[in-house]
Design a protein around this nucleic acid. Sequence first.
DNA 1: CAAGATTGAGTAGTCAATCTTC
DNA 2: GAAGATTGACTACTCAATCTTG
Lengths: 157, 157
Amino acid sequence: VGWLDGREERAWRGFVSLQQQVRRRIARELQRSSGLSEADYEVLVHLSEAPDGRMRPYQLGRVTQWEKSRLSHHLSRMAERGLVERQFCPTDSRGSFVALTQEGRSAIGAAAPLHVEDVRRWFIDVLTPEQLDALAEISETVLEHLAAEGDEGACTS
Amino acid sequence: VGWLDGREERAWRGFVSLQQQVRRRIARELQRSSGLSEADYEVLVHLSEAPDGRMRPYQLGRVTQWEKSRLSHHLSRMAERGLVERQFCPTDSRGSFVALTQEGRSAIGAAAPLHVEDVRRWFIDVLTPEQLDALAEISETVLEHLAAEGDEGACTS
DNA sequence: CAAGATTGAGTAGTCAATCTTC
DNA sequence: GAAGATTGACTACTCAATCTTG
């Protein structure tokens, strides 16, 4: 339909398929082996890397790049499941903290090695070191341009 | 949390971010400029490339890799919006056809050049030809392994 | 009124059950 | 009974509106 030449089309379609298939496969395995969704995993990883296993929701929003409301809904569901808990923030009463529970800590501890194993199996280990470097550079290049253009868009006034 | 070395982590995290950001940006533009979601666009492209602008749902399911029920729900919504229509299949009464309407044809015709423009702007044009080739190869390699392992998984018995 | 955060309504996707025809 | 397809209930995400404190 649209016009990309052969090389361009091959790269773009390849990227789109790659992304869909890899995510699907890895998400399915994560769910099966650990009962966690990609979203759960991401939240738990960030919390487990934070001091005291807790963060302010707005910080979590920044690192995950999620909408505020998505984050809030998701944290509520995770709290119901006992993976995280909400805490008061003494220095700013508007805000709160989200903290890993003991159960959340166990969950991420158990899930992480299995997940890394899958990432290796279906992604890392089938590529050469040169390909890994190339992919990293490609990613960084595109992401820089996206970030730059995103800022421009805002100042048309 | 998990254990990947520096190079591996850089490649994997880069890929994950790349994928999220690029899809988000391009999907947003598509919605804004043409009123279509990624899913709408995908269906319309496949139909527009098919003979007579129509396909059997199970064929659409194969090319999109969607679940049957997702496809069915989505086609119902698109039919309500007038983008596609359902038709009877004379040779197999179990099944049906999904066909592009005039409106659907206009929609994809208008959307495609704008969409390709965006893909170029944020993806193709910021990479070198060598990078495009490298990405295509990476994609094909990983996809082959996924396809191969997927088949193995089924025969543990 | 900005910032931090939550809520509710509407839309999209998933899973299991169902229906019809081969 | 299996293939082609749809439906309904449930879960997840988005958008706009809201609430509270700084």
